[in-house]
């Protein structure tokens, strides 16, 4: 299972790429493999306030709807509109084209409280 070294991870299987004061967020390769066949993504609204570990988006597979949580506190800056037409990008490229939203972090240091790649690898082993 792919777990890139340069990302941060949550226990609920989101990944975070720090981009200055912003955090780009998606779900991990492990999460997409568990869900399989993503058929719909309910994106957050740009400008929405996100609380750390607060429900912010929904990813639906054929079988079930799964909540996606904001890894850190912040404001939604951007959402991946490409997922509206092609939700399967989450399956085919979870760490790239399948990103879900970008947060402007309330305190960028919050990412340090998330798991690193090694800890996440251990968590899904």
């Amino acid at each position: 299972m792919n777990v890139p070294d340069d990302l941060f991870y949550t226990e609920s299987h989101e990944w975070v790429r720090r981009e200055g004061d912003n955090a780009r967020v998606g779900i991990t390769d492990h999460a997409q493999a568990e869900l399989t066949d993503v058929v719909y993504v309910e994106l957050p609204k740009v400008g929405a306030q996100a609380e750390a570990r607060g429900q912010i988006a929904v990813v639906e597979s054929v079988k079930a709807a799964s909540d996606i949580y904001a890894p850190v506190k912040g404001t939604v800056l951007e959402v991946n509109k490409a997922l509206e037409g092609n939700p399967a990008l989450i399956n085919t490229d979870p760490f790239g084209e399948g990103w879900i939203f970008v947060l402007k972090m309330a305190s960028p240091d919050d990412v340090k409280q998330l798991k690193g790649a090694a800890a996440y690898r251990a968590a899904i082993a």
């Binding site: 058929v39 719909y40 309910e42 929904v58 639906e60 054929v62 079930a64 709807a65 509206e84």
Partner: peptide, 8 residues
């Protein structure tokens, strides 16, 4: 009728 979340 439209593209959207599936019913459950």
């Amino acid at each position: 009728k439209s593209k959207g979340p599936p019913p459950r």
